[in-house]
């Protein structure tokens, strides 16, 4: 490896650590509203404590994803794509900062704070 390689890798590791630091200290305990986004459109917005099973359909009406909400936890319970990454992304609970994404189906599931009525997340 050359000097430039070592420098490049060090810079990248630092950038990742900074991002991770901001991510971990960015408090969002209040977020308890589940939002499901398909493409850039919000198709569902309800409290995470309201048990539900949301079917997400494509333009032909075929069910492509199912999001289950049970006992304050939301998870992807069905996906028609091949890799099933979104099912393996686990659960969202109050305060969760992570998102569940099913990119082949353009579906994104995340939590926002109930206090901010104005949706500051989606532009």
């Amino acid at each position: 490896m050359k000097k430039a390689d070592v420098l490049l890798i060090s810079i990248l590791i630092c950038v990742c650590l900074i991002f991770l630091g901001i991510y971990l200290f960015n408090d969002s305990k209040q977020s308890d509203v589940l939002v499901i986004q398909q493409g850039s459109r919000i198709i569902y917005k309800e409290s995470i404590y309201k048990d539900n099973e949301i079917q997400i359909k494509d333009e032909h009406g075929k069910v492509i994803n199912i999001v289950s909400v049970k006992d304050g936890a939301a998870f992807m319970s069905f996906a028609d794509c091949s890799n099933k990454d979104c099912i393996h992304m686990g659960e969202l609970k109050q305060g969760s900062k992570k998102q569940i994404a099913c990119l082949p189906n353009k579906v994104l599931v995340y939590l926002i704070s109930s206090e901010s009525e104005v949706d500051g997340v989606t532009r």
Binding site: I9, C16, F19, Y23, G39, S40, K98, L108, T122
Partner: peptide, 19 residues
């Protein structure tokens, strides 16, 4: 596709793995 800037957090994690 998603027009949601918050996915940047996940990309940060993926970038670490990309290195």
């Amino acid at each position: 596709i998603l027009k949601n800037i918050n996915i940047i957090w996940y990309i940060a994690i993926l970038t670490a793995f990309a290195v």
